[in-house]
Amino acid sequence: MTFQEFLHMGGHGFYVWSSYGIALVIFVGLYLSTRLKNKKLVEQLQRRYRQEQREQ
């Protein structure tokens, strides 16, 4: 099987590749959004705690 044939998927390339492409986007998106939320929360809380300490 050549690489061309692999991409072509016997004429169903669009259906197969778009399915896997959308899945990849969703999985990466789930991970990144969760990680980003975590980063934001940690930074936000650290700022808040530092401020609290100064006020004391």
């Binding site: 004429g11 390339g13 197969v16």
Partner: peptide, 14 residues
């Protein structure tokens, strides 16, 4: 179904 059966490996698990 030919190659479209490969969609199964995403569709059924999700």
């Amino acid at each position: 179904q030919g190659n479209t059966v490969r969609i199964m490996y995403i569709h059924v698990p999700t």
